[in-house]
Write a protein that binds this DNA or RNA. Structure first.
Lengths: 346, 346
DNA sequence: GTTAGCACTCACAACACAGGAGTGCTAACG
DNA sequence: CGTTAGCACTCCTGTGTTGTGAGTGCTAAC
């Protein structure tokens, strides 16, 4: 569809624009080493590229700027794919060298590093609750009426809930029940905890405890993971302000407002699975992000999602570098997880 | 030191300026209901107030603006002290009505509400680690070589650490050790855990386990709370941008940069104890905050600090309202904690 | 001591204007 | 026929000018 020369020029425009953030003119393109034609020729080609929708003109007599379609073509076809894994990759490796964190915290820290490296904002979504399962349940009494229930999940994360002990239940009784829960519920996906609670545990429990229904009620509330919003953590929002496209406070506000209402992100992040995804400008279905691009990477181990990292920058972001870093990070994470789980059952 | 009329005028200037964010002229003051003199008289008084350092002039022929000294005088002497506890107080009450969270999470949520109510940014500092103690220790094995150690603190917070099980230790052995730890370390302040580990537990442990030193080493790392930075959570940074004084991106950047490096806040927050504190403008020892005020409230139960909330706004912030809300919040928190711990031992 | 009157100051918005980067078109060249 | 040089035209941007209005400080009168 595009001639080689058009592709060369489109690539040149986007490359330069990513660096300079200013409309690119024909003259400056012609000065590049990889370009041999005169400004006039380039003007003609750029005019064609504009007509086809790959470039845009802020106004007559300004240079050209890539359109969403242009960026998309760049990411899909033009962009250098040999993600230069230089010293930055080395930094990531160093970072992971001797970490023994559960994967969730690990990803958070990785995102923070990514944000520093790229000068973009990073967003971490915890692992999709629907796909993590319960590893262990534990009761810690606070006083006669209150206790803390601790859940350890398959990702190594620890969650805790305060519960009120039903009157007339002794702590010893509670502890016996928790044991039963543990036997029956270990390995069950968090999402199914509630239904299993009645179908599996109920019958068993009734043999040992009299007023087990009351207890089930309490546990149902405590184990309800849907109430707990999926955690969203952002780092490096400052970097947003460094980009010249956001020198106007109002544009920044729209975006930062999104950060305060984190529910939004869940909608924006592509459905789980499927490695690295790029959403350019209006491809995000959110008005506030029309000048931003979001690159997300979903990290999985053994097919289980352990978290998602998103890198948010202006549409004019350095796609190649960010994708390269996420790529590298992905393999590091996998190797860490192998190290951690090597001698595991199954 | 100030005449009644001067106090009235200073109060009027600050009041109006808090609302309008624009320099206040003599004419607009004279229109207030509580002011009976002419603009000319007010001009003379304002001139005196400026000479004394309570007011400032952005430039000749502009109105007056309060100085740091002016705000300080306002907060200490002028500000209405009957913190109107209207429907806002009711909201807070509602919010606390049936919460059963550990106090730390409770404070975080409270801060979030405060941020919404006031349109300022809120900052939560976790309880000072030096004053919380260990309640319970728990080991959850992940595989043969790794386990999660869970610490429940006296504030009801749950912390977890991944540890590597020393080679040749069985999980059963580990669990026996943890029991000993629990007996010996429950109630010990987190800060002293490490020293007690050797002085108290070491001897006891040597009776049961052979190579206990190795184990102590592992535990020492796991229980080291000083490595873990004190948690800092911020909400509602967007509101910062709503203030007209921050319409310039560069000023915002300085402040947001602080948020990315949370260590800073620990230095800024006044030493624990002592209720509500107000830091106006340059009273904060941080260049970036020279146009901000920080109101902090330290919440304690039975003399133990359970966390600190800071409200950050422009120097022109509504001191009276914020202090009132923090005041209200403080009493709500205490009543919740009473409810939660009523039947506790001691 | 208080107030009216008035000249003076100074930020700010509106406007005009020059400079310059970049385009689009046309015509000439190989 | 594709490519290039030349040139007129567009339009953003920065700068200087001017006018307006809010507000002050001073003086004189009440």
């Amino acid at each position: 569809m595009l001639t080689d020369r058009q592709r060369l020029i489109l690539n040149a425009v986007i490359d330069d624009y990513i660096r300079s953030a200013e409309p690119i003119g024909s003259r400056s393109i012609s000065k590049r080493d990889d370009v041999t034609f005169s400004p006039a020729t380039i003007r003609n080609e750029m005019s064609d590229l504009e007509e086809m929708g790959y470039l845009e003109q802020p106004h007559t007599s300004a240079g050209r700027v890539p359109s969403i379609k242009g960026y998309r073509y760049y990411v899909d076809n033009l962009m250098s794919q040999d993600f230069a894994k230089g010293q930055e990759a080395e930094m990531l490796k160093q970072f992971f060298a001797d970490r023994l964190q559960h994967s969730e915290k690990l990803i958070q820290q990785a995102a923070s590093i990514l944000s520093q490296l790229t000068n973009y904002t990073s967003i971490v979504l915890g692992p999709d609750q629907h796909h993590t399962s319960l590893k262990h349940l534990q009761l810690v009494p606070i006083n006669e009426q209150h206790a803390v229930i601790i859940m350890v999940t398959s990702t190594g994360k620890v969650e805790s809930r305060n519960v009120a002990i039903p009157p007339d239940f002794s702590i010893a009784e509670m502890e016996r029940c928790i044991q039963i829960f543990n036997q029956r519920l270990a390995g069950v996906p968090l999402l199914h905890l509630r239904s299993k609670l009645y179908s599996e545990v109920g019958a068993e429990l009734s043999k040992y405890v009299d007023r087990f229904e009351e207890l089930l009620n309490v546990m149902e509330k405590a184990l309800d993971v849907e109430g707990e919003p999926q955690q969203v953590i952002t780092t490096g929002m400052t970097h947003m302000l460094d980009q010249p496209e956001f020198k106007d406070v109002n544009k920044v506000r729209e975006i930062l407002a999104l950060f305060d209402h984190q529910e939004n992100f869940k909608k924006m992040v592509p459905s789980p699975g499927s490695g690295i995804q790029v959403r350019i400008g209006t491809e995000n279905d959110n008005e506030a992000f029309k000048n931003c691009s979001l690159i997300t990477a979903n990290f999985t181990v053994d097919g289980e999602s352990i978290g998602t990292i998103g890198i948010l920058g202006p549409t004019r972001m350095d796609y190649s570098r960010v994708i390269g870093l996420l790529d590298q990070l992905s393999s590091e994470l996998i190797s860490v997880n192998l190290r951690l789980n090597k001698p595991e059952e199954k």
